[in-house]
Structures are given as structure tokens and as C-alpha cells.
Design a protein around this nucleic acid. Sequence first.
DNA 1: TATTGTTATACTCTATAACTATA
DNA 2: TATAGTTATAGAGTATAACAATA
Lengths: 145, 145
Amino acid sequence: MSTFTPARVTAAQESWELIRRLWTGNFPRMAALFAEFDLAKQQAFALVHLEPDQPKPMSELAASMFCDASNITGIADRLEARGLVERVPAAHDRRVKTLVLTPEGVRVRAVLAARMAEPPESVTSLSAADQRALRDILRRATDGA
Amino acid sequence: MSTFTPARVTAAQESWELIRRLWTGNFPRMAALFAEFDLAKQQAFALVHLEPDQPKPMSELAASMFCDASNITGIADRLEARGLVERVPAAHDRRVKTLVLTPEGVRVRAVLAARMAEPPESVTSLSAADQRALRDILRRATDGA
DNA sequence: TATTGTTATACTCTATAACTATA
DNA sequence: TATAGTTATAGAGTATAACAATA
């Protein structure tokens, strides 16, 4: 165990610490991926949060990204300047602007999402039985959530 | 499954997606914790990366945090201004400056680390058997790493 | 010559508060 | 009045490049 956990650890605490380690261990891989597309981290996440043919209100994106709505303005500006996203006013409420992936945005998002979904070696190197058991337990854990 | 994963998913891919969901689901809790101590995210992480009575060279901290060394200057400045950290020149190499937790830094770090190590409800609500199985699989996954 | 930490620069992200246009 | 998005502001993090002190 590490720095981040006390001396006596429950199975839940140790699991959480190992999950943290698994996740943060992937920072370099993610950073390299974003750099490859010359996208800032939040731009990449915003892109992946958008789905093809599913206009998403900016306020909704802010909620998904756990940030204030005012931040989305700038992020959308930069993605729009790159031609990856378009602002489309909502029909039912003229205050709302939705974000829509452009064809280029759809392409970039597909690659980003696929690469981000690739499990790290720590997971793929588990036995098939462990992989299934891990999935089943995590399904139970995230069931209500 | 979500946005982030393709239609046909292996157990490893789904596990990875569920881990992502578990981790990002904790953003609000972490944000609230950092706000409680009036610390920016990276300041909190830097603090937790430091251990009592273990002077850490700034360059080493940069490596742990996967960021450029130049960023640590500002982060250390702000932690030092708060009285949580001190810069102590290394004896063996006068180019190196180490960061050391002050007594107050030790106290704050202890609380931060403990709270960050608390597993989310998704994990604690698993059966005891599932918690142990999860821990064992994750141990095997992160074994080499 | 190479390395550690600093500085300068330019950019991105962050929340808050004030504004606009709608509702 | 209330809400969606924008703008302005101030602060924080980010990498790059140039610099000082030291090795």
C-alpha cells in the first residue's frame, strides 16, 4: 500500500486505493492521446461526452463535466474554432444552445472514445476468469449508481 | 454501458469503463473536500504525495504528479505561503530543494489522505465476499505495476 | 556539459458575479 | 421572476524556453 492509505486497511479501502492507482497510472497514456490530437484534457472529455446526432444543451454538458456552465462557453469556442463542434439553438427554447458534433468531430470523437475505452495492461493481463469476476463485481457496485 | 464504450464489449473493457465511472463519480466528493480546506486540486494532491519526515525533491514530486517541474514552483509557493510546506535545500546536492511538511502540513495532510482513502458507497455497499474478491483481483492486476 | 529549480510567456481551466435574451 | 448562455475578472495549472547556480 502507499502514502494514500492508513496502516490498517479494510478490503474496501485497499480496493479503492488500487482503483486510484489503476486510474492515475493511466494519466501518461491519456496525456499522450490528447497531445496526439492537440486537444486540452477538458476539450477531449467534452468531445467524448457528446454523441453523434444527439444535440446536447451546454448546461447539460456542464453538469456531466462537474463544472460551472460558464466554463463551457470557452471550451465550446475552442472546439468550434477547430471545426469539431457546432452550436445549434434548441427549437423548443430559444435560450438553449445545443452542441452538435460536426462530421470531423464525429471522426475524432470515435477515435478518442475508442482509445480511452482501451483497458490498461494491468486489466487485460488478468486471467479471463478474473476479468469476468471483476466486471461482475463492478456491475454490482455501480448498480444503483 | 455508456457513451465511452463501443457496442460489443469485452469483460476487460467493461471493467475499465466501470472503474472510470467509479472514479469520476467521486469528483464532487473530492471537490467538496478540497474546498473544505480551501486547497486547489493539485495543491491537495501535492500535499498528499508528501510524507511526514520524508523530504521530497521538487523534481521527484513533479514526476509523481506527471507534470513539468516548472509547475511545482508555483504549487510549492502557495503551499509554503499557507504554512503547510517548507523548502529545505538538500545536503548532498545544493541544486536540489526538498519539500517538507510543517507540523500544520502534517495535520492537514493526515485528514486529506484519510478522507481521500475512504472508499465510495458503491464499494462499501458490496458484500464482504465481493470486497475481498475485488481486492484480490485488483492486487493481481497491479502486481507488476 | 548536464541538471535543479526559477522565471517569463502564452494558453487553458476554474468559480463568481453581472449581464442579455428569453421564458 | 427565473433560466441559459455570455462576458469580465481573478486565480490556478500547463508546457516551453531561457536563465542562474551547482554539479
